[in-house]
Design a protein around this nucleic acid. Structure first.
Length: 312
DNA sequence: CTCCCGTTAC
DNA sequence: GTAACAGGAG
């Protein structure tokens, strides 16, 4: 099928001239509003890009910058991260959340160091096969690190495109085929432009076309948006199924245990005796279940007398 | 679909 | 108090 026809089907109601104008206005907005993040504008390696993307999964960018900077200082490439102790890596991950990402990142570093000669592979298929690297991160590395033409689809892109061109919210769950089709149809043909397009769309979703209270007066696409024109239907409605509140969940308890271990990581014997472990959480049934799951995940090691420590 | 962390902003 | 956050894996 001809590209032009595919485009028309995916974004009916928007003609080519209009889309070209929107692209220009988006790029213009990007030029003056892009945040000066340390991994942007060619200041780091592909590996540095990958680290920034993994740290940014489900985590606000403002919390990532300092962690990324010190992390890259300690382990500037895959080989150096692969050689670090797991305890060091988990400790350096600090309070970024979802510490399994740190484990996957070190596993990823080992594969890159050993199988790819310490250089990230340059194909989507090889990247997405790496530990902790899914569709979004593989696409982001292909686009932002290697400049390849590929649609990068995250929660921001889904929200911005679906709102603007379909006039509706993109609700939670996995990316739908229709959303992917739309993103691919709109992606500029020129590779360099496609990279800017991806970066700018994500930035627009993060700064302006936000989930709640979008800054319509600052949105370069405000006059084109079917969502705004329709009065932002269903905005603020739950995007995902109601979840348990964080307090008292296994995630909460696991976090408490890991935080206790991180805090004594610089001691001579960084091991928490069973007696001190039991003081971390009253419900010992839940506590032991969490300790078992942390052990299964490889985030901790259980000693002979029920003591606990970070993996060596 | 559910679980996985910790913080922010509403 | 809770949805959301540059998602990924089972």
């Amino acid at each position: 099928m001809a590209p032009v026809k595919r485009l028309r089907e995916a974004v009916d109601g928007f003609n080519a001239d209009e889309l070209e104008t929107m692209k220009c206005e988006l790029f213009s907005w990007w030029d003056t509003n892009a945040r000066d993040l340390p991994w942007r504008f060619g200041r780091t390696t592909p590996w540095g890009i990958l680290i920034s993307e993994v740290m940014s999964q489900q985590t606000q960018m403002s919390r990532v910058v300092d962690y990324w900077t010190s992390w890259m200082g300690a382990w500037p490439d895959a080989a150096s991260l692969a050689e670090a102790s797991t305890a060091e890596v988990i400790t350096a991950w600090g309070r970024l959340g979802y510490p399994r990402r740190a484990l996957r990142l070190q596993e990823c570093a080992t594969v890159v160091a050993e199988q790819y000669g310490n250089e990230l592979p340059r194909t989507y298929d090889e990247l997405v096969a790496l530990p902790g690297i899914g569709d979004y991160t593989a696409s982001a590395v292909m686009s932002f690190a290697f400049g390849e033409r590929i649609a990068v689809i995250d929660t921001n892109v889904r929200r911005v495109l679906w709102r603007t061109f379909k006039g509706k919210e993109s609700f939670g769950g996995a990316t739908k085929p229709e959303e992917r089709k739309l993103a691919q149809a709109l992606l500029p043909q020129d590779a360099k432009e496609s990279v800017t397009w991806n970066e700018a769309l994500i930035e627009l979703g993060a700064l302006v076309c936000t989930a709640k209270n979008p800054k319509i007066d600052k949105d370069p696409w405000a006059s084109y948006s079917r969502f705004y024109a329709n009065g932002c239907p269903n905005m603020g409605q739950r995007r995902t199924r109601p979840r348990q509140s964080f307090k008292g969940t296994n995630r909460h308890v696991r976090g408490i245990v890991l935080n206790a271990l991180r805090s004594l990581a610089d001691r001579e014997q960084p091991t928490l005796p069973r007696a001190e472990v039991e003081q971390l959480w009253n419900d010992h049934v839940q506590l032991d279940a969490c300790i078992a799951s942390l052990d299964e995940d490889g985030l901790i090691e259980i000693g002979p007398n029920g003591s606990v420590r970070l993996p060596v």
